[in-house]
Amino acid sequence: MMMQRRLTTLFALALLSFVAVASSPPSSRVVADSVYAIPMLTLRDQQGQLFDFASLRGKPRLVGMFYGSCQMACPLEIEYLKHLQRVVAAGSGKSISVLLVSFDPARDDLAMLRKVAGEHHVWPPAFRLARTERGDEGMLAGVLGIAYRQLPGGGFSHNVRVSLLDAQGRIVAATDASGRPAPAFLRSVDEALKNP
């Protein structure tokens, strides 16, 4: 009896480890064209929560960058994304979460993230604003096609580009986040949510 139970346990363990081994290679390995393949980047969001960028893998999401003292482009970027989230939810009943990472971590401390989040009423998990705690946000900018440059006055010259990542972190579409969400981009978001 005892023996049998032990054998059953052993069998169950063996089966478990087999399943784990069989399923681990595709799920644990970051695909080569995934933005999650950038060197380790540890972020903190507007609620103070620490997380690794690569831990976001597993669900499609929208990822872009911003800086807190930005007067023009970044507020518009945030409002565009809020609007897009509402349109997607109204159409498909599903939610697409957003991550915007600051490219000015020297000035965008937690208080600044909170201030910007408060002004726009955006909160995790649907809408995260984050700053770099460890690692190099420039690598993220590079893979997302975001370019920025500090100007003598202290502001930044930069472009706006928000990428739609599939669950693996591949960029499947991108937008400059201006005007109304383009139908083609909305379709891509719906597709990504349907086939995560």
């Binding site: 482009a73 096609g145 370019a147 920025y148 930069h158 005007g179």
Partner: peptide
């Protein structure tokens, strides 16, 4: 470090400004 942003359109929100870089 900032080579990619050397020549953005002054109004970064003009559609197509990314390609113009």
């Amino acid at each position: 470090g900032d080579y990619a942003a050397m020549f953005p359109n002054p109004d970064a929100r003009v559609p197509g400004s990314v390609a113009n870089l």
